[in-house]
Write a protein that binds this DNA or RNA. Sequence first.
DNA 1: TATATGACGTTGC
DNA 2: AGCAACGCCATAT
Length: 93
Amino acid sequence: MTELQDRFRSVIADLALGEVVSYGEVARRAGRRGAARAVGAFLAEHGGDLPWWRVVRADGRLAAHKPTDQARRLRSEGIEVSGGRVLHALPPR
DNA sequence: TATATGACGTTGC
DNA sequence: AGCAACGCCATAT
């Protein structure tokens, strides 16, 4: 586990219930602005014990591989999901 | 070193 | 809204 991965893990582990952030936001909070893809790569192997479902794309779309599972988990936390998108927040900027 | 890849992001058409 | 190009960062080969 590299130090960068450790920071990613920390940021994601600290996400509160119902708190949804983008991959880019996670990278930013970890001090690696722009490393959104790296966040995805990290979750791909060490995402087992982390709340990976609270991480979505910048436009609100859900993760590409397990969208249904993610939608189910998000809804169980009170977050509205429709058309594979999180409505709640994430307005374009 | 160099190239390819992907749970991404932005911009422009 | 949807799509295609790039750009970007870390890894794997």
